[in-house]
């Protein structure tokens, strides 16, 4: 409790000092500069999905508000930042000419229905492309490839590789790709699912489980803030993330794929990566995955 209060007051102090947007001119300008450089599509076929979006003047995006580095809302400004959030704004600019998006909170149990009934146009939410899902939705991309890693409390012995998780209790974010990844490498592991990354971390530190499996970039961010945990080895899966689209809309899928190719070629993709995931993952931006390379895309 004491610790919680300290960090709370520290957070208050920090926001107090920072005093809103003006204190961090660097980051906002970069995002704006990025947006200014972003391409806009030309004439759109009448009646197509992208034409409807352009006429509406707003791209409806299904995503998260609580995914660090990917799509996280700043409670002070209300702004959503991260790799997924930035890309969705680039796509909105490409279609509409302005980066106007409306984020609808999606969850793994609502993603398919949200697309099918037209509540959202696209899903940007570390949506792993799988052949089974591809029967319900169409996937543009993959636009990013990541992998699941293992984190443990510092000083934990007996967990050096994924197979060591077998028979142990392992924490995973509820409804994340980690759940299925653990089932594959360690069928006898007992999986403890919790709603958010902070809950998972707390449970790990409180000893409710032996390890925590999560997307590597999120774990790197966690470990950089918290000295009590450490990562074990390299990622043990490859998760191709796709942009979820309505099933059967081949025209829109081709359109989004063309846009992805364009921002990859121009280097915009890399700049978005450097501004989000690249702030915690060391080294150069990775080579983006080839469009259509994942089974189901």
């Amino acid at each position: 409790m004491g610790k919680l209060l300290t960090s709370l007051s520290l957070a208050l102090l920090l926001t107090g000092c920072a005093g809103g947007e003006s204190a961090v001119p660097g980051s906002t300008t970069t995002a704006d500069q990025l947006m200014a450089k972003a391409p806009v599509a030309g004439e759109l076929p009448a009646g197509s999905t992208m034409d409807k979006i352009r006429k509406r003047g707003e791209l409806l995006v299904g995503g998260s508000l609580d995914a660090p580095l990917l799509s996280q809302q700043n409670p002070a400004t209300g702004e959503v930042t991260g790799f997924d959030a930035e890309l969705s704004r680039l796509l909105a600019k490409y279609i509409i000419g302005e980066p106007r998006t409306k984020l609808v909170t999606a969850t793994s149990e609502t993603r398919e229905p949200l697309l099918a009934n037209g509540t959202v146009d696209v899903i940007f939410q570390t949506y792993t492309i799988t052949p089974k899902r591809a029967e319900r939705v169409a996937f543009a991309g993959p636009y990013y490839e990541s992998g699941q890693s293992i984190a443990v409390r510092k000083g934990t012995s007996g967990v050096t590789k994924p197979a060591d998780l077998d028979g142990k209790t392992v924490i995973a974010g509820a409804n994340t790709p980690a759940v299925t990844a653990i089932q594959q490498v360690a069928p006898k592991a007992k999986i403890l699912e919790l709603g958010s990354d902070p809950e998972c971390l707390t449970a790990l530190k409180q000893g409710r489980a032996d390890a925590y499996v999560q997307d590597q970039s999120i774990l790197i961010a966690d470990a950089s803030l918290d000295r009590d945990i450490q990562l074990v080895g390299d990622p043990f899966t490859t998760d191709p993330y796709g942009i979820g689209l309505k099933h059967g809309d081949a025209e829109f899928k081709t359109f989004v794929n063309d846009w992805l190719r364009e921002i990859q070629r121009s280097g915009l993709w890399h700049e978005v990566w450097r501004g989000s995931i690249g702030t915690v993952v060391k080294g150069e931006a990775p080579v983006p995955p080839a469009i259509g390379s994942a089974q189901g895309s």
Binding site: R136, V137, A174, N175, L194, A203
Partner: peptide
């Protein structure tokens, strides 16, 4: 919501693989 795998959480986990929420 706090990690007990009861009926609703089990349904969630199955849906993660099957993608058939309805």
């Amino acid at each position: 919501a706090v990690g007990v795998v009861e009926l609703t959480r089990a349904a969630n986990r199955i849906n993660l693989a099957e993608a058939q929420p309805l």
